[in-house]
């Protein structure tokens, strides 16, 4: 038992500096200036870049994606990888539903609620049964896909837009998982709960906007 705990601590000590470095690098990249472009990208490249940038253009989407990763990391195996596998699939189903005209009620409320619920679960370090965790994530993924997966500019390649969109969403999950790995530390667990409260507050803000 002690040996297994020691091994876990050793591997955590190896992973954590790398993840911390990655998180700092990602944070620093947010501060980089973007070039001013005189023309929108067109054709294939435009479709890919448009899909890649779409998920990171809305804070509501970012909060939920990162929160899925953080909660997965808090729950540990197998949720740490099952949730990010389930989310893109159901998100794509939501996008498909939106594209073929299946209407969902209160989409913006659903998106805001996803941040509220996931934020509360992270804040409370809730350890729900795996099936229920998957069900919660899958339910909210449909709303995100319905709202965001269907917003492509005319002339873009649908396939490349979809590739960019899915990759960006997956990378946001990965960022959440990388952040969530700090739960191996006592201080890290406190920081993650603080991050959960930020997600919760953001969700409440968006919920207020959706209901107003």
């Amino acid at each position: 038992m002690n040996r297994s705990r020691e091994r876990m601590t050793t591997s955590a000590n190896r992973i954590l500096p790398a993840c911390s470095g990655l998180a700092i690098l990602c944070a620093a990249m947010l501060l980089l200036p973007l070039p001013a472009l005189a023309h929108v990208e067109a054709g294939a490249a435009g479709g890919f870049l448009s899909g890649l940038s779409h998920p990171i253009s809305g804070l509501d989407h970012i909060l939920a994606m990162v929160a899925v990763g953080i909660w997965g990391a808090q729950l540990g195996r197998p949720a740490i990888w099952l949730l990010p596998v389930v989310f893109p699939l159901l998100m794509a189903f939501g996008g498909f539903a939106g594209l073929v005209g299946w209407e969902l009620p209160a989409i913006e409320v659903g998106i805001a609620l996803s941040a509220v619920v996931l934020g509360a679960l992270i804040l409370g370090q809730a350890r729900l049964p795996l099936g229920l965790a998957i069900l919660i994530v899958a339910f909210f993924a449909v709303f995100h896909g319905h709202a965001h997966g269907t917003e492509m500019a005319d002339g873009d390649s649908a396939l490349l837009y979809s590739i960019g969109f899915v990759i960006a969403t997956g990378l946001l999950h990965a960022a959440g998982i990388a952040l969530g790995l700090i739960h191996h530390w006592e201080t890290g667990r406190v920081l993650l709960r603080a991050a959960g409260s930020v997600v919760l507050a953001g969700g409440l803000y968006f919920l207020w906007g959706a209901l107003a």
Binding site: A92, F93, G95, F96, L99, T150, M152, L159, Y161, S162
Partner: peptide
């Protein structure tokens, strides 16, 4: 799979 489903919708 997600790319396939989304592309089918488009």
């Amino acid at each position: 799979a997600a790319i396939g489903v989304l592309t089918a919708g488009w």
